[in-house]
C-alpha cells in the first residue's frame, strides 16, 4: 500500500489542525472510550438540541493519528444528525473498516470525509484505532436510550 493512500494531506490536516478537539460547553452527553493496548484515550461530548438533533460534537484525548483523525472526521459528520441516524452511521463506519461494506459511492455519500479511512480495512491491527470514536459515540447513544 502506498503511504499517501491513508496518511495523505487531507488526513494529516485532521491530525495537525483538528477542528473539533476541544472541551464542549453545555454538553448534554459525554462518554469515554479507550483502547487499553494502544493507550488511545478519548473523551467525547455532544450537545443535543431541542429538535432532537446533534448541534455540536467535540472530543479531547490522545492517541494515534488514525484514532484522532477519525474522531475529528466523525465530529464533523454528526452535526445535524438524530441519535438514530448517528447510530446508523457508526454501524456503517464499522462495516467499512472491517471490510464488510465496499460500496465506495455509498460510503462517500454517507460518511463524507471519513470514507477515506476505508484503507484501514487492509490494516487489521488499526481497525480498533479507527473505530474508537464511533464505538464511543454508539455506546453513548445506547446508554442514553
Amino acid at each position: 500500500m502506498d503511504v499517501s493512500s491513508l496518511y495523505n494531506e487531507q488526513f494529516m490536516d485532521h491530525v495537525t489542525h483538528p477542528d473539533y478537539k476541544y472541551v464542549l460547553e453545555g454538553a448534554t452527553h459525554e462518554h469515554d472510550g479507550v483502547n487499553p493496548s494502544c493507550g488511545d484515550e478519548l473523551h467525547l461530548s455532544i450537545r443535543l438540541g431541542d429538535d432532537g438533533r446533534i448541534e455540536e460534537c467535540a472530543y479531547t484525548g490522545h492517541g494515534c493519528a488514525v484514532s484522532m483523525a477519525s474522531a475529528d472526521m466523525m465530529s464533523d459528520l454528526m452535526v445535524g444528525k438524530t441519535p438514530a441516524e448517528a447510530l446508523e452511521l457508526c454501524a456503517l463506519f464499522k462495516s467499512m473498516v472491517t471490510g464488510a461494506e465496499k460500496d465506495d459511492n455509498k460510503l462517500e455519500e454517507e460518511l463524507d470525509e471519513a470514507a477515506m479511512l476505508k484503507d484501514v480495512s487492509h490494516m487489521p491491527a488499526r481497525v480498533k484505532c479507527a473505530e474508537l470514536a464511533w464505538r464511543t459515540l454508539a455506546e453513548m447513544m445506547h446508554e442514553s436510550e
Binding site: 500500500m1 502506498d2 503511504v3 491513508l6 494502544c38 492517541g63 494515534c64 493519528a65 490494516m123 488499526r126
Partner: peptide, 14 residues
C-alpha cells in the same frame, strides 16, 4: 509526538 502504531504502519508501507 508520533504514536508508535503510526510509525509502524507507515514503515510497513515501504
Amino acid at each position: 509526538n508520533i504514536h508508535p502504531h503510526d510509525v509502524a504502519s507507515i514503515l510497513d508501507m515501504s
